[in-house]
Design a protein around this nucleic acid. Sequence first.
DNA 1: CTTTAATCGAGACGGTACGTCGGGTCTTTCT
DNA 2: AGAAAGACCCGACGTACCGTCTCGATTAAAG
Lengths: 191, 191, 191, 191
Amino acid sequence: MPTGPDRVDPRITRSRRAVLDATLAELAARGYGGLTIDGVATRCGVARSTIYRLWPDRAALVADAIDALNEQPPPLPAGDETPRERIATLVRHLADAMRSSPVAACLPALIDGAERDPTVRRLHHHYNDRRRAALVAAIAAAVETGDLRSDVDPELAAVAVAGAVVYRRLMTARPLRDDEVEPLLGTVLGW
Amino acid sequence: MPTGPDRVDPRITRSRRAVLDATLAELAARGYGGLTIDGVATRCGVARSTIYRLWPDRAALVADAIDALNEQPPPLPAGDETPRERIATLVRHLADAMRSSPVAACLPALIDGAERDPTVRRLHHHYNDRRRAALVAAIAAAVETGDLRSDVDPELAAVAVAGAVVYRRLMTARPLRDDEVEPLLGTVLGW
Amino acid sequence: MPTGPDRVDPRITRSRRAVLDATLAELAARGYGGLTIDGVATRCGVARSTIYRLWPDRAALVADAIDALNEQPPPLPAGDETPRERIATLVRHLADAMRSSPVAACLPALIDGAERDPTVRRLHHHYNDRRRAALVAAIAAAVETGDLRSDVDPELAAVAVAGAVVYRRLMTARPLRDDEVEPLLGTVLGW
Amino acid sequence: MPTGPDRVDPRITRSRRAVLDATLAELAARGYGGLTIDGVATRCGVARSTIYRLWPDRAALVADAIDALNEQPPPLPAGDETPRERIATLVRHLADAMRSSPVAACLPALIDGAERDPTVRRLHHHYNDRRRAALVAAIAAAVETGDLRSDVDPELAAVAVAGAVVYRRLMTARPLRDDEVEPLLGTVLGW
DNA sequence: CTTTAATCGAGACGGTACGTCGGGTCTTTCT
DNA sequence: AGAAAGACCCGACGTACCGTCTCGATTAAAG
């Protein structure tokens, strides 16, 4: 009987998916330090021993879950008309995410986890860099087309704009609303 | 008739101080969810029972420690010459803090704690609002004196600048260096 | 339909036995009021939580241990020749027990425990009644055969003889020696 | 310079008395292992520090209390007519004591304490020997006068009678009643 | 009387045990 | 052969006291 081409037991795939989802939910609900294998198992109705069979320890599980969280390709708003509109769209998208997406829900846990675990830190920084890149590109394009002053540093500008949105989510009681995006861009980019 | 002496046992003050310091250190080292009364007691060489005599539970201790953390008035650089210089000083100060201060060490824990505990949340937001106020005032003054365009919203501008510094600390591997402050202000405020 | 296998996890039986033994040892060493779950756990190298899983609290554990202590059927010397010899054997056996058996080691703890806890009291009295019954029967038999005066009350005679042995163990510095048994019977039963 | 008449601060005498009484009450209520300085202090309304000032530790306090307990000379029924009547009186007295006196209330505690603490043991045995002596003397007198067989060993007979009374108090649910004293003497001494 | 000195009540402190909860490892049983 | 169940050890929780200790506040004795 030939061994299949790396066939994986469907039960495993099923368990894997359920556990990862539950892990993200627990991460959002209890944070990095509050996450518990037992909590995850209870949430997804799987036995603890199953989790321990599939991941060596808590750290590996969390890392795997974060990976899964970020690999879900965010519905990138593609092919906008002008750089200016594209920037507005991207920031609005980010502001929206900071108010309701799974990533935002896990953000405090991610930040805390990044502080304690090198692997989490690497993932966290990596995915932020990737996400920021689109904004940097749009801003650079705007500089290119003359929509922005040429002395604008695209990287710093992107950090400022994204930073404002993140800051409002993490450091204040009021996340940035959609209608505050335009004033923000007006103030920061001089529009 | 003068108010009574209201003497407080010096042993209490001593214990209180030691425990709060240790709590902040543990918060920085293990995070909000990882903090443990046992850990705090061990770190400062105080008996667990002493901690429970002075605070009803973990939550109260953490809240108190955060309060103590913020009430140490940071050496505000006061009375600068021009608004412009004052802004630069404030931001440089913030960038510096994000690289080395106790507050920055505890920041991930604070963010995580704010997400889980309403009291921590209130404190966290309150102190951030207070700290940001100085920057807002300086920017408003710059608008007043014409150093900044009149269409600049001081609150949003402050959020963008502070947000950039915080973003670099929390979301990337490279906190903002001092020599990046000027380029940041150049880009965001058009200087 | 036969009763199910009713298998009990061998680990449980093992822990149970170890804990009960240690409890008796602690009872002998520290007494009823000095017994400590921590002490028992330490003595038998079992985790405290294991004890709490098997018994609801200290009282239940002690009661169970006392039960176990008494259920080990003492090697009753059975089927002696004459009632007279049987009485002597029984008393010698008791005197011996009062000098060295586990029961004697725990006796002060049992008496103290009986004074504080109704359950212990019930067990203590029950097992004493049971143990005394053999002596009462032998004395009654001796009365029957004319070996003892007919006005001897077997119950009181048994109490006097057993009482003497117990008294010497609990109230004096010198437990009754084997060679004192014959004189005791001579004096009390007129032999 | 002659030392004063060893005056002792009346506050001390007062505290001392109150504490010793409370100690005996606690011994009766909680036993030797359950006795607690705090319990004693609470019971007699004295501060813990006062107790610790007057006695070095728990052991000394207990020993002192036991001493006080036994030094209250029991109202010895003196000068009876015949040895036989005197014996009956003494045993009735003991039976009575085993049902209601402070000594009987503390007896389990004393037995337990004697097992753990050499000092308590010494006191316990000493006072029992003293109390038993009267009975031994009365029995010896009865032998002398021919009221008892000459082969009766007064010491063993006294132990048997006293032992019966003590046994019924400590090992059974029914302490010896007054009307059981005569049958007991009838059976044991052949009356 | 007032001063002086001791006793006293109060309670902070480092500990230890309580009984509870839950975490991660590993064994046993079931399907 | 898995997965589910759950026993095991460990450690933190918050509570209750214990015995040590340091305090001011009282109260007795001496001047």
